[in-house]
Design a protein around this nucleic acid. Sequence first.
DNA 1: TTGTAAGCGTTATCAC
DNA 2: GTGATAACGCTTACAA
Lengths: 363, 363
Amino acid sequence: VEQSVHASAARAATIKDVARLSGVSAATVTRALRGHPRVLPETRRRVEDAAQILDYRPHSLAQALATGASQTIGLLLPSTGDRYWGEVAVGIEERAAEDGLAVLLANSHGEVSRAERMLELFLTKRVDGVIVTGGAGVVDLGRLSRRGAPAVFIGWDPVVEAGAAEAAETLPPKTALDLVRSSARPDAEVGSDDLSTSGAAVRHLLELGHDRIGFIGAGARESAMLRLIGFRLALDLAGLRPWALERSDGSLEGGRRAAERLLRGDRAPTALVAYDDLVAIGAMRAAHTLDLRVPADLSIVGFDDIDVAAFVEPPLTTVRQPKRELGRLAVSLLLERLDGTAPPIYERRPGKLVVRESTARRA
Amino acid sequence: VEQSVHASAARAATIKDVARLSGVSAATVTRALRGHPRVLPETRRRVEDAAQILDYRPHSLAQALATGASQTIGLLLPSTGDRYWGEVAVGIEERAAEDGLAVLLANSHGEVSRAERMLELFLTKRVDGVIVTGGAGVVDLGRLSRRGAPAVFIGWDPVVEAGAAEAAETLPPKTALDLVRSSARPDAEVGSDDLSTSGAAVRHLLELGHDRIGFIGAGARESAMLRLIGFRLALDLAGLRPWALERSDGSLEGGRRAAERLLRGDRAPTALVAYDDLVAIGAMRAAHTLDLRVPADLSIVGFDDIDVAAFVEPPLTTVRQPKRELGRLAVSLLLERLDGTAPPIYERRPGKLVVRESTARRA
DNA sequence: TTGTAAGCGTTATCAC
DNA sequence: GTGATAACGCTTACAA
């Protein structure tokens, strides 16, 4: 082994260096530093001092190899560029850091093959567990668990037959709900309480006197279907029917186009519930283009309360999701699963209606 | 060593298993699998088959320990919740994945202590290099290099004296520029070409006949100072002076407040260059609140072209930054530095003016 | 071309 | 309480 002349300056101190300096064995160094109960206080002090002097940091890869735990978790996001998931990621990273866990990041961009590849990378890197976000119903749950990596999902998308999105629109709401919920699910999943939260949005519009309320969804992802079903359920309760339903891809442009279709017909609604804020902002754009005033001619409510929601024109009424909290919660659940198995869990957190200026009493 | 009866099912295959099955030594397995030139084709095939059969994946932590390279880089962001940095992160993650590098993520939230702590975590995890984004002028460059971790910065904030932000406003532009550029810099840095890009924004407004042009900055971060200086330089060239200067913290709300101050006075500008799209959108909000029409009464141009920029009311004229490209570039530069040292580099990428509806000819 | 053996930096299991 | 010593899974001289 080649060693530079200035070895001490170049090379990071190892446990052996500390052992030598403090006059004990490497084994004792570990014990002293890891808080093992049976170490003489005096010994512990000597070791700690030596470690301090040498600026010793345990080599975490070596630790991982020896212990079998890498103290690292994998985080699979649709995209860090997405402001919703970006915020969720903040909560995840924050909570993980509190427990000294490092976070390995990957974006799936909604592509199955990419998701699989990145998950594989995580497993190669020997993560202790993974958090999969943004509905990757396609992820092979079996493989994950076979490989011994506990996983927590945020926003699981059930693997449903082709017609699921349509079913959520047409089947009796309760039936549709059963259908959505019947799919195989992961052991641990957290998310927002889409069903009730969507109801809150509808009730707000009902209170404002609206009865021609439309909905713009976002395909077959679970949150979209649940929000739609919640929407229908709430209308049912008021003895109303959805005035119009449109689908989008959940993007700004998708929202704009869907709203355009909705508003150009002769069955234009007076109020609109959008899948999320992005779709809602897209819809507002469409309204403006068509010379409709928001909220005078059209009320709009979104979901999430992303940061710009309060700054668009007019400021958007929306249902705030506890984004960071969801992230933190996911890590906590994962932590529980890291040592031993925990019971299956399906946690929903409520959103909160934030009334701003995009909704108004029906003209 | 305890071994379950179903060892083969429970335990992941190691290199020894592959060696045994293919009838060679572990050393040969490595060589065969890593593409070492001197392996008999026949042997290589046998090994590959065995690996395939056993579903063998090298334990990357063990590899890292043996080779000294973890094939992992650390990414320090201000926040994944920030849409600009979120997009940059997409480019980084994407480019890294192409080279099989894993990305360790951490958010600094602009806090020095947090940044230091996370950087420390990265080093503990033995990352091969780090990418530090969003102006962390406070990061101890010396320590990073002493610890042998190459670093690439995206958006370095020079460590400047307290009055720097003011200097950028008051000193002769060229002098201010020298001042900003005089600060110690990291070896490798990439970013947008703020100076020229800002000029493009100003020229656009000049062409529209504006001569009362204001600027809303964002403190002492380098990009803010350079954009301000570019702004002043471009006005100088036209024989004009800045009509008004305001500072903000670079947030939506900060932009709103700054614009409010600017627009309520009797020296209200007819056009505004904002530090970035967030500030610009905040400013638009202020304008609307004050019953000013955009762009009829006030033209506004932003920077970045974040996704909502095209969907706010009115759609925002802005300078598009090559966000993902910057991220990719940073990884490429880091890659060069990973093996051996590369020459210092300071790469600027130009932005592109995207004219939409928030700017118009002066009334 | 291939095998042997040492080593990467820890931790865990024994003894003492 | 502490020290040897053997793992952990892989790579890389050095021999053969």
